[in-house]
Write a protein that binds this DNA or RNA. Structure first.
Length: 111
DNA sequence: ATAATGACTCCCC
DNA sequence: GGGGGAGCCATTA
């Protein structure tokens, strides 16, 4: 692990942990809040590492389209979908309904 | 140090 | 509206 990117991960975790129940956000939004809108891909990578943590609701993080692209990385096939539905969201075919209404805009922690 | 991979996003056809 | 290609960042081999 490099020295600088490590902070990036911490920011990602910190932000994801701040996502309120019943809300979701996108990798790009997180990356942007971190001051690196082009590091959306890296955010996903951080999520992968967040799997070893227990306080990082990665299931609330989806792509900008509101699609559960990373559901495949979860325990089961629909584990992510079930989690979101259990939080009051509506997920159909790995697609969050009214994603724009359930989206959660993170605050810039980079400032 | 170079090359390949990935839970993304944007641009073009 | 749907599909394909390129770009960016960080990690791993």
């Amino acid at each position: 692990m490099s020295k600088l990117p490590e902070d990036f991960y911490q920011k990602v975790y910190q932000l994801v942990k701040q996502i309120p129940t019943g809300k979701v956000t996108s990798y790009g939004a997180i990356a942007k809040a971190l001051g690196s809108p082009q590091s959306a891909r890296t955010v996903g990578y951080a999520m992968n590492a967040s799997h070893k943590l227990n306080n990082v609701p990665a299931h609330r993080v989806v792509n900008r389209n509101g699609v559960l692209t990373g559901k495949h990385h979860f325990s089961g096939t629909h584990a992510m979908q079930q989690l979101l539905e259990a939080e009051g969201l509506v997920v159909i075919d790995d697609q969050i309904q009214d994603f724009d209404k359930h989206i959660w805009q993170p605050k810039n922690i980079d400032t």
